[in-house]
C-alpha cells in the first residue's frame, strides 16, 4: 500500500454509454496488485469532492507498469474522472483491500458479474487462466449496448457467457440464473461474484443451496480506505457463539465469503 501522487494517465476512453476505461501508469501499484483489490483515487485537486473514490482494479500489465480501471459515471467524483487526459498526473493510493483468494489448484471456477461489477472479475479471470484454471465468466448487463467487450478473456481461454435483462444479447435473464444452470450441469469448485446488492444476495442463496465455496465483493461508502475510520462497515457472521459483528469493507474486505455476509439488518 502506498500513495502515488504522480501516477500518470495513459488513456481514458468511453467504451459504452456512461462507462469508461482508464489506464494508469503506476509501476509499484501494478507490480503488487491482486485481483479484487482497489485503488483509492483523489478525483479533485480541490476539497470538493473531499474524499477519494475507491475503484476496483480491472486489468494490469506488470511489464509496462500499468493498471486499468473500469468506472461508471454515477456522481461528481466519477464525472471528474472523465476529464483526465493522457499524460495528466493522478493521485492514487493502493492497491488496497484483501483481494480474492485464489488457490493454485487446476480447478474450475465460475465468475458472475453484473454491470461495472465485472471489473475485478476480469482481473481475476486473467490471473486464474495463467494458473491454468478453467474459468467460466458470466457477464450480466441490462442490454446489448451496455455489454462490455471481453476479448481478452476469450484470448486467455476463458468460457465467456453473457446474460442481458432484456434478452437483446446472450441469455435472457440475470447472470445468477445462468450461473445456476452451470451449477446444475457441471462441477464448479469456487464461485466469485461482484455486482449490485440484490445480485449478491441471490449469489449467497445459490452458494448456500449448492454448498459451494463463494466469494463476493462488497461495496460501501468509504472514508480513509485503509481501515482507520471505520466508516465502511458491513455486518459479518463471526461464529455461532459470537454471532455477528461489523467488519471494514476497505481493510477486512472488500472480498468476503458469501455465507458470512449479513445483508438485511
Amino acid at each position: 500500500m502506498h500513495i502515488d501522487t504522480s501516477a500518470t494517465v495513459i488513456s481514458n476512453k468511453k467504451i459504452i454509454p456512461e462507462h469508461y476505461k482508464m489506464e494508469i501508469y503506476s509501476p509499484q501499484t501494478a507490480s503488487s496488485a491482486k485481483p479484487g483489490q482497489f485503488i483509492h483515487i483523489k478525483t479533485s485537486r480541490t476539497t470538493s469532492p473531499l474524499l477519494r473514490r475507491p475503484i476496483s482494479i480491472y486489468m494490469r500489465d506488470k511489464k509496462r507498469g500499468i493498471i486499468s480501471i473500469l468506472y461508471k459515471t454515477v456522481g461528481t467524483g466519477t464525472s471528474l474522472l472523465t476529464e483526465y487526459k493522457p499524460e495528466d498526473t493522478i493521485d492514487i493510493m493502493g492497491p488496497l483491500g484483501n483481494g480474492f483468494p485464489l488457490g493454485d489448484e487446476q480447478n474450475r471456477i465460475a465468475l458472475a458479474g453484473g454491470g461495472v461489477g465485472i471489473a475485478p472479475l476480469v482481473f481475476l479471470a486473467l490471473e486464474a487462466s495463467q494458473l491454468k484454471k478453467q474459468v467460466i465468466f458470466i457477464q450480466g448487463a441490462q442490454c446489448k449496448t451496455t455489454l462490455i467487450e471481453t476479448r481478452e478473456l476469450k484470448d486467455a481461454g476463458c468460457i465467456v457467457e453473457t446474460a442481458t435483462d432484456d434478452g437483446s444479447a446472450g441469455f435472457h435473464g440475470f447472470p445468477t440464473e445462468l450461473l445456476k444452470k452451470y451449477l446444475e450441469k457441471e462441477r464448479i469448485d469456487t464461485v466469485y461474484s461482484c455486482g449490485p446488492t440484490p445480485m449478491l444476495k441471490t449469489i449467497k442463496k445459490i452458494s448456500l443451496e449448492n454448498k459451494i465455496q463463494t466469494y463476493i465483493s462488497l461495496e460501501q461508502k468509504m472514508g480513509c480506505g485503509i481501515g482507520a475510520c471505520l466508516g465502511c462497515a458491513c455486518r459479518v457472521l463471526v461464529n455461532e457463539s459470537q454471532g455477528s459483528t461489523y467488519k471494514r469493507v476497505c481493510a477486512d474486505g472488500p472480498i468476503f465469503p458469501a455465507e458470512v455476509v449479513v445483508f438485511d439488518e
Binding site: 473531499l50 460501501q220 475510520c229 439488518e265
Partner: peptide
C-alpha cells in the same frame, strides 16, 4: 461497542458527516 449500522459516512461540500457510533 460495535458502532452504528451503515451507512456511516456522507460526503458534503468540503466536508463529511459521520455516524460511526464509537465502535
Amino acid at each position: 461497542r460495535e458502532g452504528n449500522p451503515p451507512p456511516r459516512i456522507i460526503e458534503t461540500p468540503s466536508g463529511i458527516l459521520n455516524s460511526i457510533g464509537l465502535q
